[in-house]
């Protein structure tokens, strides 16, 4: 099957610094791909490059590579070659994104309902009433309790978990083909993280959207990903299905990374604490 989104040979620089080098991967409809790596690996820059947000306000530049996206009409277009106007029509509409900090990703001066409605009005050309209908539907989809009442609330009146649900509702409001989630649960408490991950998995099945999840957390990867791309120092180190990566990683970096991941239950049956059995990794 032809992929929905195909990144080929992507290289992104900030001045003389290469943040992403020769990165390639494919995402298919209905699939979740996790790009995993530690800080500075280039995973977030990769996500921003797909949205073509990396060049705005920073010195970032897409140096080489293609980002092929299959439009709803079935054409393959290269996002790197699109004009800013064309990208604006794609962002939030066909490809949407959620961010790490639900605390700050919502505008404090508008009610959450208005903010989601605005995205719908912008892309779908609905009137205010139809947009509000859609918002209510989305709030129910992401299981915000008392959705109608919540629509009138302001971000500061909501908890972090509820705000992230609002962000997800906003991201899904225009039926995107691809959802990019940049560390969507990192700022959340563990019980709330579990809820959001469950929700994302459920929604992917319901909407058929492809999900690109950017994370540093191997636990999150194991919970949601079908396929995994491991990044280190701007490059893809290893790729494979989630089970392949977790059970038979081939690359030394992946092995070292996995060895340092704390796993719940790994100490079962042992009375005394024990250090990690670290694997040496020289880059």
């Amino acid at each position: 099957m032809e992929p929905l989104l195909s990144v080929r040979g992507l290289t992104v620089t900030f001045g003389s610094f290469t943040a992403v080098e020769d990165v390639s991967f494919d995402i298919h409809a209905g699939q979740t791909l996790a790009v995993v790596g530690e800080s500075g690996s280039g995973k977030s820059v990769t996500a921003l490059s797909i949205m073509r947000l990396v060049e705005l306000g920073t010195r970032g530049k897409i140096e080489r590579g293609e980002i092929l996206f299959r439009t709803p009409d079935g054409d393959m277009i290269d996002l790197v070659q699109q004009s800013e106007d064309a990208m604006r029509a794609i962002r939030g509409n066909q490809i949407s994104m959620i961010f790490q900090e639900p605390l700050t990703s919502l505008n404090p001066v508008y009610s959450v309902g208005d903010q989601v409605a605005e995205a719908v009005i912008l892309h779908q050309g609905l009137d205010k009433d139809a947009a509000n209908e859609r918002v209510l539907e989305m709030f129910r989809l992401v299981r915000i309790p008392e959705a109608e009442k919540r629509m009138a609330q302001f971000p500061h009146e909501m908890s972090g978990g509820m705000r992230q649900r609002v962000m997800i509702a906003m991201a899904l409001s225009c039926d995107p083909k691809v959802l990019i989630a940049d560390e969507p649960t990192t700022a959340l408490d563990v019980t709330i993280q579990a809820q959001i991950l469950g929700l994302m998995r459920d929604l992917r099945e319901q909407t058929g959207a492809a999900v690109l999840i950017i994370t540093h957390d191997m636990g999150v990867v194991a919970e949601v990903a079908d396929d995994v791309v491991v990044m280190n120092r701007a490059r893809v180190v290893e790729r494979g299905s989630a089970t392949q990566i977790f059970e038979s990683a081939a690359e030394p970096y992946t092995k070292a990374l996995l060895a340092s991941v704390p796993r719940l239950g790994s100490m079962a049956g042992r009375d005394e604490p024990a250090p990690f059995d670290l694997v040496e990794y020289q880059s």
Partner: peptide
């Protein structure tokens, strides 16, 4: 972040 989010939603 919310400005980044607005940009990502096509504003």
């Amino acid at each position: 972040e919310f400005v980044k989010a607005a940009r990502a939603s096509g504003a």
